[in-house]
Amino acid sequence: MKNRTSLVIVFFTIFIDLMGFGILIPLLPTFASKQLAVSDFGIGIIVAIFSLMQFLFNPILGKLSDRIGRKPIITTTLLMTATSYIIFSFADSFLILLISRMLAGIGGGNIAVAQAYIADVTSKEDRAKGMALIGVAFGLGFVFGPLIGAFLSKFGYYVAGFGSAAFSFMAFLFAFFFLPESNLSKSKDSKISLKLIDVKYIIKVLKIPRVGLLIVLFFIIIFSIANLYGTFALLGYKHFNFTDQQNGFLYGIMGAVGVLVQGFFVKTAGGKINERKLVIWGTVLMMLGLGAIPYGYNFIGVSIVVVILSIGTGILQPTILSLVSKFSPDNEQGAILGINQSLASLARVLGPLWGGFSFDYLGYYAPFLTGAFFTFVTLVLTYYYLRTD
């Protein structure tokens, strides 16, 4: 690794922020359903608006970080995230909850910038290991966040909101005082476009050999898993009669498995196992996990299926992110990773919308089978078209 200290600092910054994110995510669907009487489709909108804001602002934040540096963007978005959680604590209507998630979505654009940060401080050979750190931070955030959220929710959902805000503000302080700037050769190109949606640039990126296919694969994978965002907790609450605490534990299992896979397997396998094989293995496991979730029968059964699913996603996401970065020009890392995250955010808009609609009108199993089908499409595209050598 070229700069291990910087990697450690950005890892802890992301981890602390995602602790706050992990506190609220398992609680959002049940809060909206029980406290605000929001419909299942309305919950899909609440979940999707977060990702819509990421879709709109990720490319801007990525390009802006190429121009003015990574640190200013990361610290500013962390403050925005903390503010959104405070608004959540006072949400007493669908509209206020929607506004809080919109602001959180803009703040969530810091993940693409964090990916660009890691690309700055790692060599191409170590890129997969560096990107896996983000997955580990996500995983740890989803181990401890839901458990903390399950505990805090006993005292009221607003307490969980304040807890989330506290973690994001701590991440801001940590980044402000300790995170060094990684983009030391900032772009001076005055022609860099900061359009809200730069269609020409997106098309240009999609035409880059191998990068375009990888971004499409990532889009399909994220859409497939995003079908669960609003519906997984509802499945537990409405179909399996799980409590908020049990739903929180399931998210914790997802996070723990993600940490183990990305923190150990992906880092160990990086450079030893062909990336194409990793993508195929990950896709098969993810497809099986998604298809089996609605048939888990009870808490133990769903837990086993969640482990299978989490192994698949734990392999897939850092591997594809690493390949996108590996085949992208060095001076456009922030912009291209921003486009990738933006399109992934669009998938996170469409996934919850379809998930909420299909759960409401087609049956509780529909979102999960949809995800399994599209993951199969990814497997076919990978097998016949993806080349990583």
Rank of each mutant, 00 (worst) to 15 (best):
R127L: 05
I118S: 06
S164W: 11
E181I: 11
S123D: 11
G107P: 10
A128D: 02
A160R: 04
A82D: 09
F167L: 10
D92Q: 14
V143I: 12
A128S: 11
I197H: 04
T122I: 01
G108K: 13
F142A: 03
I86Q: 07
R101W: 11
Y158A: 15
A137I: 01
K124E: 08
G161C: 04
F162T: 12
F176V: 15
F162R: 12
G149K: 00
G212C: 05
F151N: 10
E125S: 06
I202Q: 01
A116D: 06
Y201A: 13
A175V: 05
A112I: 06
V199F: 03
K124N: 09
A165H: 10
K200W: 08
F94S: 14
V159P: 00
M102S: 15
K124V: 08
F174T: 07
P209L: 04
R127D: 02
I203N: 01
V199I: 12
T81Q: 11
G135Q: 02
M102G: 14
L95I: 15
F144Q: 01
F174G: 09
A165R: 10
D126S: 15
Q115M: 00
K188I: 14
F138A: 12
K191N: 14
A114E: 05
T122R: 00
A171E: 04
L95A: 15
I96Q: 10
M170Q: 11
F177T: 13
Y201I: 14
Y85A: 09
I87R: 14
K154L: 09
F90R: 14
G107Y: 05
K191G: 11
A165K: 06
I192P: 02
G145C: 04
S89Y: 07
G145T: 03
D189E: 07
G108C: 11
A112Q: 03
Y157W: 11
I87K: 12
R210A: 09
I134S: 03
I118C: 02
A137S: 04
F169D: 06
F174S: 11
I99Q: 14
Q115T: 00
S153V: 15
T122S: 00
S84H: 02
R210F: 01
K154T: 04
A171P: 00
V136A: 01
G149C: 02
N183Y: 06
F142M: 05
D198V: 06
F94P: 13
S153T: 14
A137G: 01
V159M: 02
S123M: 11
G109E: 08
F155E: 15
I208Q: 02
G139N: 00
Y117S: 05
E125V: 08
L194M: 13
F90Y: 13
G149I: 04
E181G: 09
F88V: 09
S153N: 14
F90K: 13
I134H: 02
L133N: 00
F167P: 04
P180A: 13
A112R: 01
G161V: 01
S190D: 10
G108Y: 11
E125T: 12
F144W: 06
F90M: 15
S84L: 02
Y201H: 12
F162P: 09
F142C: 03
A116W: 00
G108H: 10
I106C: 09
S185M: 05
A132M: 04
T122G: 00
V143G: 07
V136Y: 04
I87G: 12
L179I: 10
A119C: 04
S182T: 12
K124G: 07
K154F: 02
S100F: 08
L98C: 07
F88D: 08
K204W: 08
P180K: 14
I87N: 13
K207T: 06
I148Q: 04
